[in-house]
């Protein structure tokens, strides 16, 4: 009894130790956002508090960070909306309706393959495609590419959520006189709202976090937050404070999501991973 108790405490402390390993460095880095540069460089633990980094980052004339935030939000919202609508409609059809087996196989199989292939192998081709039709650097190009990039995950999530509905429910609606479209809008859509929220949140987060696509397909006007942060870090004279401030702002959506929708994300991540 006693031994297992000690073992339990030990086991717990390992897990909580890991949690501390996550939290500690994160908080340390984020704390830099509220420090003066001199204090960051000298590694002062107790240092005066300042909002200066945020002011510099958001409102100084050399910084485009506000525009970057806007770009990230716009690209995230629009691409997520496209992805979720496309994925949910397709998921319903693939899960319940009579589709030729090869169509189902091709869509889901290709989605799986594309999901696992390194994004970087596609980026060059996208760049050339968009350049050749004059769309490079436009919102349209970035939004479409973010959408296709996140489509497989959203599709798997929605297939698993939509597929979890009882088949008899769909059949009952068919008996009651619904066409496929009516079954979708009146029965499936209201019932998978929870799943759609989870998929929406995850898709938005992944669009918001994307670096590889945004790095190669955005221009100065459409640059997103991650690319901006990377640019900070690449400058010769690294502006640590502003970088930390930018980092802090960039993780806000993720933090918000963890606070309000923890269970949703866990379910979503698991559903996406097991496929």
């Amino acid at each position: 009894m006693n031994r297992s108790r000690v073992g339990g405490l030990l086991a717990n402390s390992v897990v909580w130790g890991y949690a501390l390993m996550i939290l500690g460095p994160t908080l340390w880095v984020l704390s830099n956002a509220f420090k003066f540069k001199i204090d960051i460089i000298t590694g002062a633990t107790l240092s005066p508090f300042t909002w200066m980094n945020f002011q510099e980052l958001l409102f100084s004339r050399q910084s485009d960070f506000l525009a970057n935030l806007f770009n990230s939000a716009l690209i995230g919202v629009v691409s997520t909306a496209i992805v979720i609508i496309a994925a949910t409609m397709a998921a319903f059809t693939l899960a319940y309706l009579e589709v030729k087996p090869w169509v189902r196989w091709a869509i889901l199989g290709w989605a799986l393959l594309f999901h696992m292939l390194p994004t970087l192998t596609f980026v060059g081709s996208w760049y050339l495609m968009y350049s050749s039709i004059g769309l490079h650097g436009t919102y349209f190009a970035v939004i479409m590419t973010h959408a296709v990039h996140n489509l497989p995950m959203a599709l798997f999530l929605m297939v698993s959520f939509v597929g979890a509905l009882p088949r008899e429910l769909i059949q009952a609606a068919r008996m009651d006189g619904c066409t496929y479209a009516q079954v979708f809008w009146r029965i499936v859509f209201p019932l998978v709202r929870g799943g759609m929220i989870a998929a929406t949140a995850l898709t938005f987060i992944f669009s918001w976090s994307d670096f590889a696509i945004s790095l190669t397909l955005t221009s100065r006007d459409t640059m997103t937050v991650p690319v901006a942060i990377a640019t900070f870090a690449q400058e010769y004279d690294i502006r640590y404070g502003e970088m930390a401030a930018g980092t802090l702002l960039s993780i806000m959506p993720a933090l918000l999501l963890i606070l309000v929708g923890q269970n949703f994300i866990v379910r979503g991540l698991l559903a996406g991973a097991v496929k």
Binding site: E168, L169, Q171, A172, R174, M175, D176
Partner: peptide
């Protein structure tokens, strides 16, 4: 199936969970 003038009672009942009893019954 909706145009055969047949009604079906399912094993799982297949009631629409987001509708009230009255809405379920009058849906068709």
């Amino acid at each position: 199936p909706g145009d055969r003038d047949m009604a079906m009672v399912f094993q799982s009942y297949a009631l629409y969970p987001h509708m009230t009893v009255a809405e379920n019954m009058t849906f068709a």
